[in-house]
Amino acid sequence: MSFDASEYGRYVAEVYDETYAHLAPDAAVERLAALADGGPVCEFGVGTGRLALPLVARGLTVAGIEGSPEMVAGLRAKPGGDAVEMAVGDFAQTRMPGEFALVVLAFNTIFALPDQAAQVACFRNAAAHLRPGGRFVVEAWVPDPGAFRAGGALRPVRVAEDAVLLEVALLHPAEQRMTTTKVRFSNAGVRLLPANHRYAWPAELDLMAELAGMRREHRWEDWTGRPFTDDSRDHVSVYRRPERP
């Protein structure tokens, strides 16, 4: 399947920050800073810097890989944006120089990759960026095919006085894919934000980590560290590269 790493940003970069302004990053930044333990951080799919810039503000060295030049321009335009070393490219393949204490792939972005092979390559690329004992952190939702009726689903993502965000999705279970478009209604008009997904269950991600030479260290329901249970709809999973013998 062909994959254009820059496509998502072309649709959403202009309104990304205002669309997701309701998602406060404080708990994620706190957890990531603790996991990095003062070491350098590389974020895959860094976007406009929702996590990277607060980590820089905490004194951490942060690098990022982002497929969209438009998203990178948004990051660069913000205070502190020049402090993030950036590479534009597919984060399943693109390599940043150096070794990192922490690689971050947040906000369900692992599912932006088009197929299982690309996701496995992403895990291997993350492992290649890590120093011995380093960690790879993945934030993702837990697949819920039961939420679809006749192969389709419509759900509200955010309902507020100034904007409404809906997600419309079609399920393709044979390939574990979802064709999705978010629809944003605001006083400025209607905006379509397509973002297709190749979803994977947590256990499948664990196996990808094993194939890349990493082991799962933690799995929480969210960034605050709540236990992951049968009812959890999201997870934050931490994988660790072994120390040298």
Results as ranks from 00 to 15, higher is better:
H129W: 10
G146W: 07
G98V: 14
N187G: 12
G146D: 13
L192E: 08
M71K: 02
N108Q: 07
L102A: 05
N187T: 15
N108R: 06
F148D: 01
A174N: 07
V56S: 00
F123V: 02
G89L: 13
A106I: 09
D82A: 15
P79T: 09
P145R: 03
P145W: 09
C122E: 01
L154P: 03
A126F: 09
G64M: 10
R131T: 05
P114A: 08
A118C: 05
P114K: 01
R177H: 15
V103H: 01
Q93F: 14
G80Y: 11
R155A: 15
P114N: 06
G146F: 10
A92Y: 09
S186H: 04
G80A: 07
L166A: 04
V104K: 02
R155Q: 15
R95P: 01
K78S: 01
A140P: 03
V142C: 09
P54M: 03
V159I: 13
G89M: 14
G81V: 05
L113T: 01
T180V: 15
A121D: 12
R177M: 15
T179W: 10
A126L: 08
Q176L: 01
R191M: 12
L55D: 04
F136D: 04
Q176A: 02
F136L: 14
R58Y: 04
N125C: 14
D162K: 05
V190W: 05
A117Q: 11
N108F: 08
D90M: 04
N125Q: 12
T179H: 08
